[in-house]
Design a protein around this nucleic acid. Structure first.
Length: 469
RNA sequence: GGCGACAUAGCCAAGUGGUAAGGCAGAGGACUGCAAAUCCUUCAUCCCCGGUUCAAAUCCGGGUGUCGCCUCCA
């Protein structure tokens, strides 16, 4: 069965058929590196990280490209405010971005091109557009002539006259139409600039993605993705440029992540209601943040609050606890089959199918997590009722969770260290005390260990311990 | 003003025609020396009003509400 992807271009779910199977070219619009990223930005990167990993899990050979926008108005203004150069600003926030995103377990893209390193390709693209008459020069600037492209507005489902009706008209515009957009901006005093056939200047914002994706992929992308606020005008403009220059669609599938809201309002740098990843990481486990983001479907709006992080953290802890117990149980598991394992075997098989079905259906991570919780409960029942455990079965369950975690990465699955001798000895002493109903001693030992971050759990099959979360 | 999305329990959230996944929180219970962890039970007729249908949370029409885009924004 094919993976289904909701394509913004057609507003419907379509079977995923990459152009050159099993290769998949995947372009995600990256950050403008003028500030720390906020949790809303992070949602996009986390979601597409999971989608990338899932495609790999399903056997696709994915090449992920994510750009850095390191030259534009915001970059120039911020650099001026801080009294540093634009390259200095970019270097600083590219580093910050990579740190933040790494903390959130987002894997780096295969290619991370920067706009300023592709001025040559950008100029070539603009020359093509000028040669074909799809662009015009106006007082040193170069603009794309949107009236040349009949489908302009298709992605955002707006007609050109409707867009015109709502367009803001600036006095002294150099554009012929308010819908036209800059491909090249003439330099102003004190601004960074590059030489071009039209004089010194710098690229407009939208042109870099078209130029770089063409440069690296050299063909229509399989997936082009970004936040929903890029639909218009950014992606609309990219489509127009690539169509104008090469007469081909930029991408087959357009994917857009829903907004992350703070108190039901869009979080955005311009509204000033931002919570940076950096700030949130101080008080939250990055895996909790990841878990919260994946608990909703990627296209739905998602509210963010400390309470919600705590809620999803509590659920995540339950999964983590099951995994910890599973790892312990596996150590003492037997080679032979045991009682009551048919049920878990059936649960596992069902979970495997449901998980793939959920993810195949436009990456329904919320549904998939439901499957994960279902199996966790069934596994807990088995661990409670079916001693001795069957090694092979537990191994299969663990493998399923490892596969899941290779995509979602919301759990820590690693073999625990051997019981340290000291802890082992303390547990033995406590057991002796308990045997003589010396509760004062047994509680003291437990409290001491608790103070050191070790939690004891008494089970019918002995006492086990784990590190406190 | 134009365009669009959404509206499911205290909270979060799946579910596009056949009588409501999952999680958090709460209540009761089991287990425990007490805990912790875990398990069991319990907690929704799906914003409102009409319509189509044997059958609708799911389709259609009309409301109401929230949010977004039309301007930089993930």
């Amino acid at each position: 069965m094919a993976i289904k992807i909701y394509n913004t271009l057609t507003r419907s779910k379509e079977d995923f058929n990459p152009g050159n199977q099993p290769q998949v070219t995947f372009y995600v619009c990256g950050p403008t590196v003028y500030d720390f990223i906020h949790i809303g930005n992070a949602r996009v990167f986390i979601i597409f990280d999971v989608i990338r990993r899932y495609l790999q899990h399903r056997g696709f050979d994915v090449t992920l490209v994510q750009n850095y926008t390191d030259i534009d108005d915001k970059m120039i203004n911020r650099a001026n405010e801080q009294g540093i150069t634009v390259p200095e600003l970019a270097a600083r926030f590219i580093e910050a971005y990579e740190q933040d995103v790494a903390a959130l377990k987002v894997r780096p893209a295969d290619l991370k091109p920067r706009a300023t390193e592709h001025i040559e390709q950008i100029i070539e693209l603009i020359e093509k557009l000028l040669a074909k008459g799809y662009a015009y020069i106006s007082e040193g600037d170069v603009y794309y002539d949107t009236s040349c492209y009949a489908d302009y507005g298709k992605l955002s489902q707006q007609k050109q006259d409707e867009l015109l009706a709502g367009a803001r008209v600036e006095p002294g515009e150099k554009k012929h139409s308010p819908l036209d957009f800059a491909l090249w901006k003439q330099k102003k005093v004190g601004e960074p600039f590059w030489e071009s056939p039209w004089g010194e200047g710098r690229p407009g914002w939208h042109i870099e993605c078209s130029a770089m994706s063409t440069h690296y992929m050299n063909d229509t992308l399989d997936i082009h993705a970004g936040g929903a606020d890029l639909i218009f005008p950014h992606h609309e403009n990219e489509i127009a440029q690539t169509w104008g220059a090469d007469g081909r669609p930029l991408a087959r599938y357009w994917m857009h992540a829903g907004y992350l809201n703070l108190e039901s309002q869009k979080m955005s740098k311009s509204l000033g209601n931002v919570r940076t990843v950096r700030e949130l990481l101080v008080q939250h486990d990055p895996l909790d943040l990841r878990f919260l983001i994946l608990s909703a479907h990627y296209r739905s709006p998602l509210n963010f609050s400390t309470e919600l992080v705590a809620q999803s953290g509590a659920g995540r802890q339950r999964l983590q606890g099951m995994i910890d117990n599973l790892l312990v149980a596996l150590k003492g598991a037997a080679a032979q089959q045991g009682e009551g394992e048919e049920k878990l075997q059936a649960n596992l098989k069902e979970a495997q199918e449901r998980f793939v079905n959920a993810m195949d259906d436009d990456f329904n991570t919320a549904d998939a997590l439901g499957v994960i919780f279902d199996l966790a409960r069934n596994c807990n029942i088995y661990l409670k009722e079916s001693h001795p455990y069957h090694q092979k079965l537990l191994g299969e369950v663990l493998q399923f969770y490892r596969d899941f975690n290779a995509i979602f990465e919301v759990l820590e699955i690693s073999e625990k260290q051997e019981l340290e001798k000291e802890i082992s000895a303390l547990i033995t002493r406590r057991d002796e005390a308990r045997a003589t109903k010396d509760w004062a001693t047994s509680d003291r030992i437990r409290d001491d260990l608790s103070a050191r971050g070790i939690v004891l759990e008494d089970t019918p099959h002995g006492t086990r311990w784990k590190h406190k979360e």
